[in-house]
Design a binder for these strands. Structure first.
Lengths: 140, 140
DNA sequence: TCAATATAAGACTATAAAAGTCCTATATTA
DNA sequence: TAATATAGGACTTTTATAGTCTTATATTGA
């Protein structure tokens, strides 16, 4: 229950990888490299990288020795941001997904208030998790 | 992202309803009543109620004036329990779903430790949410 | 006793989301 | 100018969710 999807996981792995490698040597990281290290299907990861680029989290470079670099500071990229891209807004219950009320239970719903609270707390947790923070658990 | 499924929501609504009604008048609550009040498809809710009964959260009574009553104290039924029934174990990332390691990223995974932490915190939140606690926000 | 009512259980279908592929185009570099 | 890498769209496959249908069983009350 409550699992993030693979695109989000792949995106986080890629961003994390770039964050760590960026410190070693300033260079572009290409999709193939990330796909091979983490055993991610190349065409799928390519899509993910493109999306991250389109959304302004990565800067891309075409051609030989091309690839991507982080377009933002690692401390400014949160898990909440990335998950939002690949799976929409955080919504523990259906009713929190859209602004307008579509839930047929809404009026008589007995659980919406505590679940709204849960949603809020969970969001806080996801915002605290930045690419920089994640990197700390992998500092060698 | 991170949403509970409808069976879980329906189950929680039903349990919550029974918790509140039980206090008013000691009687069995039938599936039709719950389905109508909360606009839940009857055959689907029936399945959910049967599952809750099978798992020992409800006690059932056949026939005219039959229905269900809570088989446990409302304070002993948590959202974690119910969600677990209808959508399996809490697993923010795929790798926490099974005991044995099947994730192809496992060895090189840069994010598993912080996500394990997130999983743990989230589980705590769900365990704190009991049917009794949920009822408090609806006390009239 | 028997009709009405409510749960029990399994198989089944439909829909939607997730995961993954394929093809073509474009920019860059050595 | 060939090789390389990103860009983008359409497409297929797979899996999970949501919902339905049918038949059986237990209980009650007239």
């Amino acid at each position: 229950m409550l699992h993030l999807n693979r695109k989000t996981e792949y995106a986080l792995l890629a961003l994390e990888h770039m964050c760590l490698k960026e410190k070693e040597k300033a260079r572009h990281i290409n999709t193939r490299e990330v796909a091979e290290i983490y055993h991610i299907p190349y065409p799928l990861l390519a899509k993910v990288m493109q999306e991250l680029s389109r959304r302004g989290f990565l800067k891309s470079l075409y051609g030989v020795n091309g690839g991507y670099v982080l377009a933002k500071k690692a401390s400014d990229i949160t898990v909440a941001d990335i998950a939002q891209i690949f799976e929409g807004p955080l919504a523990v219950a259906e009713c929190f997904r859209d602004a307008k009320i579509t839930c047929p239970q809404w009026n008589d719903c007995l659980i919406k208030d505590p679940f709204y609270e849960l949603n809020r707390k969970l969001h806080e947790l996801l915002v605290e998790m930045t690419i920089e923070n994640l990197a700390m658990s992998n500092a060698s």
